[in-house]
Simulated assay, not measured.
Amino acid sequence: MPEGLKLDTPRLDDGAALWRIARDSQVLDLNSSYSYLLWCRDYATTSVVARDTAGEPAGFITGYLRPQQARTLFVWQVAVDHAHRGRGLAAAMLDGLVARTGEELGVEVMETTVTPDNAPSNRLFTSFAERHAAAVSRDVLLDADVFPESGHEPEVLYRIGPIPGLVRH
């Protein structure tokens, strides 16, 4: 964990900050501010926020349990505030979130989607699998032509797991 930062569970009042971090990333698909507020309320147990020394969000990961696969954590968005980039925060949040959900919710597998041009996210999830000695598969989940807007790249599904060493309840 980068010095001066700590992992925490998101709270409803973090929603606006998470929306701003996502907006300012200039790479994430920005959801409505309302959705970030609800995410902090309804999916806090499957999400994480990194806080600075003042308690303000410096980064976040939103995730949820797959409805038909309760031991699979789907990571929706990963974002780090510009001031905290380049310090390994995204990896620390991902490790912390998967460890916590493994222990508290029985998570054994992680999924996410990444577009082929998103080199930082491709590295983040590939290195996670390597660090945890977990198998990783990649398959196109959503082809570009299913999106209503033109120019959207395909979304490649990363399926990582089972993840060895997770404490399961």
Rank of each mutant, 00 (worst) to 15 (best):
R71T: 14
R71V: 04
F74D: 02
F74P: 00
F74K: 00
V75Q: 11
V75I: 15
V75N: 12
V75S: 06
V78C: 07
V78D: 01
V78L: 09
A79D: 13
A79C: 14
D81W: 00
H82D: 15
H82E: 15
H82P: 13
H82I: 13
A83M: 08
A83F: 10
A83G: 12
A83L: 13
H84T: 10
G86R: 02
G86H: 02
R87C: 06
R87E: 07
R87P: 05
L89D: 02
L89T: 01
A90R: 12
A90V: 13
A91E: 14
A91V: 08
A91I: 10
A92N: 05
A92G: 07
A92W: 07
M93Q: 09
M93S: 11
D95R: 09
D95S: 11
G96Q: 03
G96I: 05
G96W: 03
V98I: 08
V98W: 00
A99C: 06
R100P: 03
R100H: 08
T101R: 02
T101G: 05
T101M: 04
G102W: 00
G102A: 01
E103G: 09
L105T: 00
L105E: 06
G106S: 09
V107A: 07
V107N: 02
E108K: 12
V109E: 10
M110L: 14
M110N: 01
E111A: 15
T112I: 09
T112N: 14
T112G: 13
T112L: 12
T113C: 13
T113K: 13
T113Y: 10
V114M: 15
V114K: 15
T115D: 09
